[in-house]
């Protein structure tokens, strides 16, 4: 009855909507100018993404004299190098999960938790700054706070008699590094997930409640499925963010933790381990892993967002 009538009613309105028409000379000129605006991006991507990537790809298959070799790739399967990939993936996944979870909870509190608006504004600004606070300054800040003679370590010792390092904590270990990474992972998660949370309609929750659902049922059946594509996107971004980090780890641990990025640095910078081509192969391995992650993300996102336009 009505559906057909509605479509018929809506049809002409859509057809008469104004907009640039295909084939119209002015529209074509406008479109050409729009493409022109993208030229700087393409130039940048070519110069600083495609060329280096090509260089990495070519260098991975060359020896020191420039001759073709598969030795660099074969070396990636050496136990120490394989271990560095495993450690890097573990650090990245751990901090993405930890930062993602905590960031989500904070973002939830400031968007849907009914906190005062000024606090929300402050948190957004703080997150923007904190998510970019990484590298040597971040490492130093953590050493000054949680190092063996750090402010907090000393305070806990003198005020409460708690010896952090005797209790098993070590800033220069896997968990110490992960803790340091979460400092920029949490605010990054807040920045990414906040718009998605803002998009959650209050009426969805009320409709679910009205239909008899508890808060948990609402989140399991509506809230989390609706947020899943944003969650996956956020996780992959956080993972990538930690996967490529170098300066923070290097400044904090001085190479004690065997991350791939630190290994690449050692091969390229020309210390004892100088072997740029192995460095290229290591970087290629990272590119392959990130590509695999992005492909997995695309697949999962398709599965989780069949309902998205």
């Amino acid at each position: 009855m009505t559906a057909l009538a509605e479509r018929e009613a809506a049809g002409p309105a859509r057809e008469s909507e104004p907009g640039p028409r295909a084939g119209h000379p002015r529209a074509d000129v406008k479109r050409s100018l729009s493409w022109l605006g993208l030229v700087p991006f393409f130039l940048f991507a070519f110069a600083f993404m495609l060329l280096p990537a090509s260089s990495i790809l070519v260098g991975s298959f060359q020896d020191a004299e420039g001759a073709f070799t598969l030795a660099n790739l074969a070396n990636l399967f050496r136990p120490s190098i394989l271990n560095s990939y495993i450690v890097t993936i573990k650090v990245s996944a751990t901090t993405a999960l930890l930062g993602g979870l905590l960031g989500f909870l904070i973002a939830y509190a400031i968007t849907l938790g009914g906190l005062p608006k000024p606090l929300k504004s402050f948190m957004s600004t703080f997150s923007g700054v904190a998510s970019n606070f990484a590298g040597v300054p971040l490492a130093f800040a953590f050493i000054a706070t949680l190092g063996r003679m750090g402010v907090l370590t000393v305070f806990l010792r003198t005020a409460f008699g708690i010896e952090l390092y005797d209790a098993g904590f070590n800033l220069y270990s896997f968990w110490g590094l992960s803790l340091t990474y979460t400092y920029f992972q949490i605010p990054l998660m807040i920045l990414i997930i906040e718009p998605a949370l803002e998009g959650m309609k209050r009426e969805w929750r009320e409709a679910a409640e009205n239909l008899g659902a508890t808060s948990l049922q609402y989140w399991l059946k509506v809230g989390l499925p609706v947020l899943m594509p944003a969650f996956l996107a956020a996780f992959i971004l956080l993972f990538g963010n930690a996967f490529g980090a170098y300066a923070t780890a290097y400044a904090l641990t001085g190479g004690l933790i065997n991350l791939v990025t630190i290994l690449i640095g050692a091969q390229v910078k020309g210390n004892v381990l100088h072997d740029p081509n192995l460095g290229y192969a290591l970087a290629l391995g990272m590119i392959i892993i990130m590509t695999a992650c992005i492909l997995a993300y695309s697949w999962l996102q398709k599965l989780s967002s069949r309902w998205v336009k």
Binding site: K201, E206, A207, E209, N210, L211, G212, V222, W307
Partner: peptide, 22 residues
Amino acid sequence: IAPNKRNLGMVFQNYALFPNMT
């Protein structure tokens, strides 16, 4: 009595259909 225990049907201005469900 909580809204989910009242057994009252409600229709909202902006439909409020769950976007992830058919």
